[in-house]
């Protein structure tokens, strides 16, 4: 066994590694993460993300603490970016398709297919929510670019949303952040499906 490193050298080495890490962190901070990449895709969605983050952060904060604030902040950021990009991209992004704009007041959601996406530090999840007869008929995870397997949340969470007709999903153990992504994506999609004339 080799002799032990002197404490001074250990401290110096730790500082050197820390400096390398800080450099890499700052270099990659300028929008080169998957988080930033996914935010651009998320910006294709509606500007209701800010409402989604606002309404959901309270629920999720009790589950995952400080990390939820990152997600909420991201959702807000993507929504602010979307306010300008929506005008240019409009519905060509395919955020919704053939919604029935009938002015009924009994259905909470308008029929159609709506897309939503959300991202945090572990990656991005996109969903497609189909509303039929005012109810959530189908939820499909269209892309799951997270660092953990999609099988953690698929089909458990989509099935839950359809079965219970709610976005108040349970947090999947071991997949807290993937659950958050899915939650925000569904909320974002359903914000688009919201019936403005609904008086429930």
């Amino acid at each position: 066994m080799a002799t032990k490193m002197s404490p001074k050298f250990v401290v110096l080495s730790a500082l050197a590694v820390g400096a390398i890490y800080a450099t890499g962190y700052s270099v990659s901070a300028a929008g080169s993460t998957a988080l930033a990449a996914s935010s651009s895709s998320a910006s294709n969605a509606s500007n209701a993300a800010s409402q989604a983050s606002g309404s959901s952060s309270g629920r999720s904060s009790s589950k995952s603490g400080g990390q939820t604030s990152n997600t909420a902040a991201h959702a807000s950021r993507s929504s602010s970016a979307s306010s300008s990009s929506n005008a240019a991209q409009g519905k060509s992004s395919g955020t919704s398709s053939s919604p029935s704009k009938a002015a009924n007041t009994t259905q909470q959601y308008l029929d159609g297919t709506y897309n939503g996406s959300a991202a945090n530090q572990i990656g991005a999840v996109s969903v497609s929510v189909t509303v039929h007869g005012g109810k959530i008929a189908n939820v499909q995870i269209t892309s799951c670019y997270t660092h953990y397997p999609e099988s953690y949340i698929d089909p458990v969470l989509p099935d839950y949303v359809v079965a219970h007709q709610t976005t108040q999903i349970p947090v999947v153990s071991g997949a807290t952040l993937s659950t958050e992504d899915f939650y925000y994506a569904v909320v974002q999609a359903l914000q688009q499906a919201q019936n403005p004339h609904y008086k429930g």
Partner: peptide
């Protein structure tokens, strides 16, 4: 960290697994 830093500077990696992700939680 050095390799990831260089990769981030050179914009290497793919869209889903960028060097910046590896330098962050989790």
């Amino acid at each position: 960290f050095l390799i990831l830093t260089l990769a981030a500077s050179l914009h290497l990696g793919n869209a889903s697994f960028t060097p910046g992700d590896a330098l962050r939680v989790p």
